[in-house]
Design a protein around this nucleic acid. Sequence first.
DNA 1: CGCGTTTGACCTGCGC
DNA 2: GCGCAGGTCAAACGCG
Length: 351
Amino acid sequence: MSSGGGGGGGGGGDHHGFYNHLARGDGAEYVFGSNSDMLESFFFNQPPASGGGSRAGGGGADELMPPYSSSITDYLQGFLDPSGLARHLDAPTVKHELSLDVMSHDSQGTSGGAAGGEGAAAQLTPNSSVSLSSSDREGEGGQPPRRCKKKAEDDVAAAEGEEKDQENSTKACRNNKPKKKAEKRQRQPRVAFLTKSEVDHLEDGYRWRKYGQKAVKNSPYPRSYYRCTTPKCGVKKRVERSYQDPSTVITTYEGQHTHHSPASLRAGGAHLFMPTAHPLPPHLMPSSAAAAFRPDLMAMMHPNPSMFLPSMPPPQIPAPSPPPPPPLQQHHFSDYALLQDLFPSTMPNNP
DNA sequence: CGCGTTTGACCTGCGC
DNA sequence: GCGCAGGTCAAACGCG
C-alpha cells in the first residue's frame, strides 16, 4: 500500500561495497553489510565459522568487538536459518542487502531521531555513544496495561447521539490508566537493516502482525510497525523506506525472539538454527556466515543479473581473467558515501 | 470464524 | 508549558 513498490527507483546510484563499521563509545553500534560485491570481502576478512565467524572483518572492527562479541555472536547465530535464507533468496523482489546495523537504544533513541530513517539513521554516526540496554518497559512478554475498551461507549454514544458524553467517558477512562512515570521508557537493542527490495515487508521466517503505521516526517513513505505474533515474544520491527533511496527498505528489529523461527522448524532446519534467542531475520546475515554454514546457499547469493535493480550497474561478466577484488578500504569509502547519501544529517563529512 | 491489516485517536518523550 | 513527532492501541474491516 504505502510505497508504491520500488517505483521511485531512481536514486539508487552506486551502491557497491559493504559496511563493516563498528563504533563504540559508551554504547555499541555495528554496521555489517552485504551485497553482491562484498560477499568475497567477507570471505577475505574472516575465516568462516571462526569464533566470531559472524563478525564483519576489516578495519578496526576486531578491536571493537570483544566487549560485544557475545551479543554479536548471538545475533548472528540466529541468522543461520537456512530455510529463511533460502526463502529469502527465492524472493524475486529482493535485490540484495545493503547493510545491517546493530544498535542499542536507550530512551534517547525513541524519538526525535533524524528525519527519515530514524531507527537506522540515528545510529549511523561512527562516534555515536549509546548505552546498551536490554530491558524494555514492556518487559518479557509483558504488555503495557491496556486501555479500556471504547467500542461499547461508542456504540451507546452513537445511538444516543451524545458525542460529548462519549468524549468525556473516553478521556475519563484514559485518565484512569496508571502512568508509570518513574519507569523510564527503555528499549531493547535494535538492529537495522538496509535492504534493497521492492517490497516493504520482507519475509524473514517469523510471523508478524502489523499494529501500526505512521507517516514519517520529511518522507513520503510511511513507517510500519510489526510485532511478532508468537505469544510471550515481544519482538518488534519497524519497516520503512528510505526517502533518499526509495529502493532501500530500512527494517529495524527490536528485542529478541524467545522461540525458533517457525519457518526453520517447518523446514526441519531447527537443528541448524542456534537456539539463541535473537530478533534478526535469518536471511539477513553477513554472507560469510551464511556461506560458512551453507556453502550451497552461498552460491545462490553471487551476482545474478536478474537480481539487480535497473538502477544498479550491470554486474561484471567475469572475463577470462577476472579482475582482483578491490581493496577493502575502497569498499569502506564507497560505503560511507552511501551512508552519507542515505543519512546526510547523521553522517559526518569524512570518515 | 480466525487472523491480519487499516486507520484514527491517544500516549509519550523531547526540544524549544 | 506547549507543540511536534514517534510509538501504540484497538475498533473496524478485509480476506481466505
